[in-house]
């Protein structure tokens, strides 16, 4: 099981679990990043930190540390 932060740019993976604080988990879950959702990294900022990810047709920007709390598996 890998985290989203370790996923190569552009590869679509499936969310397995969201870890981290309760508030963080709830935020992502209510925005639609629930287990089973497809997600991929679209862009990485120049210094490697915020990542732009695509979820359900929308794009979000999240921290690498946050992406490390999203467990994913290959599709």
């Amino acid at each position: 099981m890998n985290s989203l932060a370790e996923t190569p740019l552009g590869r679509a993976v499936t969310v397995h679990a969201v870890e981290g604080s309760r508030a963080f988990r709830r935020r992502l879950l209510e925005m639609g990043l629930v287990p089973g959702t497809a997600v991929r990294i679209v862009t990485v900022a120049p210094l490697g930190d915020p990542l732009r990810i695509e979820v359900r047709g929308g794009q979000w920007s999240i921290r690498r540390a946050e992406a490390a709390q999203i467990q994913v598996q290959p599709r």
Partner: peptide
Amino acid sequence: ATQVARATY
């Protein structure tokens, strides 16, 4: 209309 699923919650 482009993000219906997200709004249903």
